[in-house]
Every structure is written in structure tokens, then in C-alpha cells.
Design a protein around this nucleic acid. Structure first.
Length: 177
DNA sequence: CCCTGATTCGC
DNA sequence: GCGAATCAGG
């Protein structure tokens, strides 16, 4: 099957509606989810409203060489590596859904210039904007963030964690109260 | 192990 | 442009 105009349109629609690649592939028929994902990327609509699953830690591992099958004569491929890789951010930001997040917060008090060592480094606002700032509240010991943001940064881990023993829990509560 | 999207690269 | 292979992660 090929990507007819119609099929592409269906793809877009379903993708925007939040269907997964495999579901779309199944519905379209004749394509695998890989094909769908590949198409989605080529169409440039990779980013989608992701409720909660930031599957991109800004991590770019060097792809391991994939054993290719050269059928005819093996073409010479003298180390034609791309010397320049995009520079990575030194410090990985905590995952945040910037684009369309109703999550509003008070502007931070610190800028990249005034951000101290013991200040909460939680980014607030659009990094490409002038109003971008950091939380700037006193960070909790050991963590780059204040108590509140620390909770957000080091998320729930969905599976309920084992129970804290009561003593610790109440102790911690007292600290915050 | 099931699933998810992301990325690479031979075709 | 296409998509299988592969990856990273929930």
C-alpha cells in the first residue's frame, strides 16, 4: 500500500485524535506501526498532546551500527561520519509539557544569572521567552529543587510505593507543616 | 512481555 | 519518501 492523499488524511486525523501508531496502522491496513510513525515524522507532526509521558529525555545515544545487507558489490564506505553533532544541553531539564499546558505558575524570582546554588532550579515559562525564569525558592537539601518542585520532578512513579513507616511519615509531615 | 513513540539508514 | 530494525522507556 502507498500513502495516498486519503490515507494520509486519515492518518493525520487519527493521530491528532490521539490514537496510537499501532492502532492507526491496524485501521489503515497494509502498514505497520513503524510505517505510521515514520510517516508521522515525515509529516512533521511528531509532537502530540502527550498527557503524561514525556518520552524524550533529551538523550541522544550514538546508534549502534546496524548490520546491513549489501546485495551487489559492497560499496566503499570510508568512515563518512558526521563530525558535528548537535550540542546537547549540559543540564537536562525536568520534563515539562510546555506547549499547551494549562499548568500556570507564578513567575520565578531568579534568572539564569541570579540563580544561586541553593535556589530551586525549576524552569518557569518558555525558555525561549524573555519572561523565562527559575523558581528560585530555597532548594531542598541535596536536590536542585524546592520541595514542591522536587515532587513534580521526581514523579509519583505511578505504582504506589511501599508504605513509609509511620514514624518517618509523620516526621516528614511535621517538617513541612 | 506487553505496549508506546523516536531514530537511523538502506532501499 | 518509505519503513524495518532498533532503541528507550512506561
Amino acid at each position: 500500500m502507498s500513502w495516498t492523499d486519503e490515507r494520509v488524511e486519515t492518518l493525520k486525523k487519527l493521530w491528532q485524535e490521539g490514537h496510537s501508531a499501532s492502532q492507526i496502522a491496524k485501521q489503515l491496513g497494509g502498514v505497520t506501526r513503524n510505517a505510521v510513525i515514520g510517516k508521522v515524522h515525515r509529516l512533521g507532526l511528531s509532537g502530540r498532546a502527550a498527557p503524561s509521558q514525556p518520552t524524550r529525555p533529551l538523550y541522544k545515544p550514538a546508534r549502534p551500527p546496524r548490520p546491513a545487507a549489501s546485495t551487489t558489490s559492497h560499496a566503499e564506505r570510508p568512515a563518512a561520519q558526521t563530525p558535528v553533532r548537535r550540542s546537547e544541553p549540559v543540564l537536562a531539564r525536568p520534563v515539562i509539557s510546555q506547549p499547551v499546558t494549562p499548568y500556570v505558575e507564578e513567575p520565578g524570582t531568579a534568572t539564569v544569572l541570579t540563580l544561586g546554588a541553593k535556589m530551586c532550579k525549576w524552569p518557569i515559562g518558555d525558555p525561549s521567552s524573555d519572561s523565562f525564569s527559575f523558581c528560585g525558592r530555597r532548594s531542598d537539601d541535596g536536590t536542585p529543587y524546592c520541595v514542591e518542585h522536587g515532587r513534580v520532578a521526581y514523579q509519583p512513579s505511578q505504582k504506589a510505593k511501599k508504605r513509609d513507616n509511620g514514624a518517618d511519615l509523620s516526621r516528614n509531615l511535621r517538617r513541612y507543616l
